[in-house]
Amino acid sequence: MDQHWSQARRVFAALFTPPALFLLAFFLVPIGIVWLYSFGQNVSLTEIAVTGTTANYTRALAPLYLGILAKSAWMAAAVTGLCLIAGFPVALAIAFASPRLKIWLLLMVMLPFWTNLLIRTYALIAVLRDEGYVNQGLKLGWALAATLGTHTSAFQPLELIYNNFAVMFGLVYVQLPFMVLPLYAALDRMDRSLLEASLDLGAGHLRTLWSIVLPLAMPGVVSGVVITFIPTVGAFLTPDLLGGPDSQMISNVIERQFKRANDWPFGAALSFVLMYLTFAGVALQALARRRIGARG
């Protein structure tokens, strides 16, 4: 089975060529054009001249945009952290569930994928808004408590939507499966006898979790963090729909350059600044992987 690809060149070529051409034509070429645009300037409403100017990057690296980038990165880091905290116990529970139950639990994690992101986000609006399900429920409780004579004041709805809390809540909700699945994959592969050994040798459950389970799950944690963090930095739908006047993220700015502002070169430069940072992040992950690999 462990045959090297050079021993079956033709099979390899036949299998590899179509996807490679597809990637070239529909991913690398378009992205290359956008990359060229980032060194261009608008000469008319519809034409861009690639002049090699770096003015777009200079503008993209101004404090205003770096600040928005930093804010997006901070939001994404917070969302990733929350996903990790919420996702780890879930992944652990699935990994240790009976095989029958495991399938159902995994299905429940993946079920939201079957619904379009937009529809899920609108559903969240219905839950979080001032007259939404949460506030309606609280209002009912408030009214019941009032009949018991605990208070007489009017119910003030919680401000759950159109602020940064709502954006973070929405992003955690959307990204959680991306964290749970790699964690589950790592935990499921774990050698159970190591846990038994740890418990036999006198370590408590928490100690075992911290010293045995967590290090073994580390590759899953790293993958989960990367595939949660990257799309979150680039999120624009959630801050658009759930955010308030303060919730702008970098992708909202990029989207506006391509649409309303009709300033493609600047939008391209902003996109590529984000992409360079993403590449740097992936490179760091690869380094971290190697270190974990070397240690293990």
Binding site: N42, L45, L64, Y65, G67, I68, K71, P245, D246, S247, Q248, V253, R256, Q257, R260, A261, N262, D263, F266
Partner: peptide, 17 residues
Amino acid sequence: GSEKQHMFEEIMTRIRA
């Protein structure tokens, strides 16, 4: 003109930020 449109967009970005 585009210049003005870009100016308006950047102001809005600043207001939001």
